[in-house]
Write a protein that binds this DNA or RNA. Structure first.
Lengths: 122, 122
DNA sequence: TAGCAACAATTAACATGTTAAGGAAATGCT
DNA sequence: AGCATTTCCTTAACATGTTAATTGTTGCTA
């Protein structure tokens, strides 16, 4: 992941914060549990990351009126902008993996990892 | 690594502390730089881990008399005992990876990872 | 309806990764 | 010798993973 981290260091955003933003950008507003699932984070981590992102005005948090234990998180325009600006670069980095291995071996690698840890990243 | 972490949780030792102890058990007394290399740790991490292990009486630190900036680290009998007691179990867990994938695919996986990140774990 | 179990989030406590800044000792050069 | 540089290690500051304890809400049930 180091090339990704490098790219992100310019933005002052970490790998995990990036992951959360990407999930929000892709799927839109969602509750915390779903967000934790989709970004592969534990709740305590998500709590802190959400707080950080909120402070940076990259997401907004809103309580569920029906069940006030719950909350929803949504990406802001500023957050979306970060994703939009960087995701081509990120995609290119990931494509680099395929370049190194070749399409076939890349798939093979994903297969092997999947078998080691089924469902890790569906 | 989660099965490994599980095993270690019984001993009150973390994954990285375990790694440091294993390297020391295998190669014996060595300077910090070599230890950091062999256990894939950055210096600041190693400083803290060494301090923790020293507090637990699992390693000893000694200054190099010729160059007092340097120090050597050595595993104690207590540390060695932990390794001896747990390493069969750990080996068995690693063998589990091979069981899941089979010998051939296990080697294939190591190959692919090596190509992605040459020299990560020689 | 009062009381309690279940659930969602948060906080706490500890260990680590990571980058940057500091401090002490050794080296090199004048 | 005197001083800048380099080297080795430590601290600091921040973000995260992890487990456990806590807080606030719901909802069920006696």
């Amino acid at each position: 992941m180091s090339p990704i981290r490098e790219m992100l260091s310019e933005t002052g955003i970490t790998e995990q914060q990036w992951r959360v933003l990407r999930v929000l950008a892709e799927f839109g507003r969602m509750d915390t549990k779903t967000l934790a699932d989709r970004s592969s984070l534990l709740f305590p981590s998500l709590t802190r990351i959400a707080a950080t992102l909120r402070d940076k005005k990259l997401v907004t948090q809103t309580r569920d009126d029906k069940d006030r234990r719950r909350q929803f998180i949504e990406i802001t325009a500023a957050g979306q902008r970060i994703i939009d600006e960087r995701s081509p670069h990120a995609a290119q980095i990931v494509a680099g993996f395929k370049d190194v291995l070749g399409e076939d071996d890349y798939e093979r690698l994903l297969d092997l990892l999947e078998r080691l840890d089924p469902g890790a990243q569906p």
